[in-house]
Amino acid sequence: MSGTTRVYGLIGSPVEHSLSPAMHNAAFAAMGLDAVYTAFPVEEENLEAAVKGLFAAGVAGLNVTIPHKSAMLSVVDDLTPLAVGVGAVNTVYLDRGILKGDNTDVVGLLRAVARDGARLDGRVVILGAGGAARAALQAVLLEGGEAIILNRTPGRAESLAESLNEMWERDAVQGDALEPETAVEAVAFANVLINCTSVGLNDSEATPFPWASLLPPDLYVFDTIYSPSETRLLREAREHGCRTRNGLAMLVEQGAESLRIWTRREPPVDVMEAAVAGSV
């Protein structure tokens, strides 16, 4: 590092476990940039002061992780349409003196599924109704697809569907309960299933969809979780003939999109993925 090194970072709590520093620093080295990426643990009550202070001190860009993605909406000066649509910010930068908030999760998901030739312009089943689900649903709607949200609390799924249909002025999203009858009916007519819950995270025996034996073999199954590298959902889907992918590609692709925004250069996605692949 020197006095001219550009500093980027991740804010959240906790951040000690994050793969982002390894991923971004590998990219900077491969790109020949005098830049460094580090993690900043920031508690909720200090969020605005930390963000304003870091940019005042010369930080060139920030990523945002839990629990601050939604709170960042009111911290930045301006929001991109994707950040508004998802209701969350994961990338922050200065644009002609204006602190701007963006969301790269949508692009990250689209590029991740595109690796397998999958598309979200058909009928997509979304498991969960939280922040990851909102990003996935924006991706589906951008592609012109339709979605059904299945959630253990059906009211949350229905409310999210209603808000998205109003936002997009389309009747393209439905919400329902994550129960055997509705789940099996939903996947029977779907092209893609995306798990946006945390069920299965660091637990190879937990699954958000215990009816995998009924998955049609032509279904593409994507799990936003990447640890373990093959969740029970993905393992059982693969055993029934489905194509599958875990969330590592989405992590890498959303990080790469942040780098494009910050540097206006094309990042080495393969280098970024290699830097973190051994950690999951």
Rank of each mutant, 00 (worst) to 15 (best):
G255E: 09
L82H: 00
D223K: 06
L33Q: 05
A30S: 12
W262C: 05
D223N: 03
L193C: 10
N63K: 11
V280H: 00
E44D: 14
P14M: 08
L62G: 01
L160I: 07
R119T: 09
V84M: 12
K52C: 12
I261K: 04
P216L: 14
A147L: 09
L219Q: 06
P267M: 02
N90G: 04
R170K: 14
H240Q: 05
V187M: 10
A177H: 08
A147W: 07
E239Q: 15
G122I: 05
E166Y: 07
E239M: 13
Y37I: 03
N165T: 04
S227F: 02
G255N: 13
L19F: 14
S20V: 01
V59Q: 00
V107T: 08
G155L: 00
L193H: 01
T5A: 10
A135M: 10
D270I: 00
G241W: 05
A161Y: 11
L120P: 09
E44A: 15
T197M: 00
A129P: 10
L193K: 02
N165F: 01
A50N: 02
A56Q: 11
V124E: 06
M31R: 06
G144E: 09
G58E: 02
N165R: 05
W262R: 06
T104W: 08
A50D: 02
S70V: 15
V84L: 14
Y226Q: 13
G278C: 08
P81T: 02
V276Y: 07
G87A: 11
G241N: 06
D121A: 04
L137Y: 12
A256S: 10
I194M: 05
P21A: 03
P180W: 15
G108N: 01
E16V: 11
A56G: 06
N151I: 07
L54W: 12
D105S: 05
R152A: 02
A161F: 11
V15N: 14
P210M: 03
L33F: 01
C242K: 12
W168E: 14
D176E: 15
I66F: 02
T224F: 00
G145H: 09
L127T: 03
P14E: 11
K69S: 05
E181I: 00
G9V: 06
T38F: 14
D105L: 04
L110Q: 15
R111L: 06
P154F: 13
G101C: 01
G278F: 08
N202D: 14
R156M: 03
D78V: 08
G53S: 12
R115N: 03
A50M: 08
S20N: 10
R232G: 01
H17C: 03
S18M: 13
G122N: 01
P208K: 03
D176R: 15
V84R: 14
P14Y: 05
L54A: 09
T153V: 12
P21H: 12
D77K: 09
V125E: 09
V113R: 03
P180K: 13
L259F: 14
G85R: 07
T153K: 15
L201D: 07
A71Q: 07
E179K: 14
A133P: 13
L73E: 04
V36W: 15
N46P: 00
M23K: 02
G144F: 03
